[in-house]
Design a binder for these strands. Sequence first.
DNA 1: TTATAATGTGAATGTAGGTTCAATTATTGA
DNA 2: TCAATAATTGAACCTACATTCACATTATAA
Lengths: 208, 208
Amino acid sequence: MAVINRKARDKQLRKADILKAAESVFASKGYHEATVQDIAKEAQYGTGTVYLYFKDKNALYFSLLEEKIKSLIDAAKEKTEKIKDAKKKLEVFIRQSLFFFEENQNFFRIYTMEKSSLQLIVGKKTTESSRAVEHATEYVEKLIKIAQGRGVINKNYSPSELADILTSIIGSIVLNWTRTGLGSKKEGSLSDKADFIFEMFLNGVGKK
Amino acid sequence: MAVINRKARDKQLRKADILKAAESVFASKGYHEATVQDIAKEAQYGTGTVYLYFKDKNALYFSLLEEKIKSLIDAAKEKTEKIKDAKKKLEVFIRQSLFFFEENQNFFRIYTMEKSSLQLIVGKKTTESSRAVEHATEYVEKLIKIAQGRGVINKNYSPSELADILTSIIGSIVLNWTRTGLGSKKEGSLSDKADFIFEMFLNGVGKK
DNA sequence: TTATAATGTGAATGTAGGTTCAATTATTGA
DNA sequence: TCAATAATTGAACCTACATTCACATTATAA
């Protein structure tokens, strides 16, 4: 019994090693230009070892994507669920998203690439992962609906459309930040942009 | 003299044929999964012919990208330049962008893929095209600055940041539209969303 | 009409990289 | 310690293109 547990745990550790390496390599080269050898080398394993833990390059990629998206959503849920006030809920969600991407810049790159490639990249399989991406916006949609119910957001607008818009605004801010601030911490933390996003999402950028 | 002209014109026609085919193939498969044979077949030429008009697959891709982005910007400039009112200028720009993407759905796909892949896709060469993409947002930035100068948009916000945000909002609306409305014209024209975007960009989505 | 040049072609070539597997090394349990 | 079993490896294999090129077709113009 104890043996099985340790083996299972070790197996998880190996998988985690490989996923971590894959994240960094996919982020810097993109799916197609990243080679399995690159990933193996980065993870300090032989090429064949990767195939002991993942069926193929594709499975590795989607495994990575799903795991990360799950943790993104989980973290957001955990932070926002307890909050009652709809406005605050939305604001915390935005801040948490920024925080997550700040901590996971490599994942952010992969995530945005994936979102735009949509049904592409490697034929059919993407359906699975696009489901994962959908889950992410579904949660945002839920928050929007709550805000609409509480009279915080105008009910005339489609929640799913607003969810996509909010998501893309956040993405655009993060992208901007990775382009400029990357090394220098002069710009301050990315999460500081949460107020700005929240404010402009609710009240726009027009001069009052 | 007349001969040279006709030849030059014919050469342009061939290039246009190939570019058109490439647009459709790249849009549906993405850069890496699209093969030169696919494109040649779609354009009804032999494989080798493509290489008579473009140095390689890469050059074909960027040629396509630059040509389209140029026409996107040119069309936007043409429509907005004459307009004096800053608000109207911005609104027309948004409407024109939507119109362009409605007419060029294939290009839209490629454009969004390219934007997110950033420095990636095929190594160095992307620098050229990312310059083209930059040109596009530069023009939006210019419009924003004008609007700020005229007291339409709050001066506290960074023009380049706002340009990216507006661009990504438009992108998100177009993406939404291509997902749902594609065949059925029930949804109405995409350009109809211009008012909504303009309104929410200036005044936000909060309930007043 | 025919020689010459220009264009077009798709099979053949070269290669990069995903996947496999025989050989090697580490782990286990007696 | 020593089989037996499991894990690891990276060179070899194989496929899918990008690119080329010897040949075919078409246009030119004398």
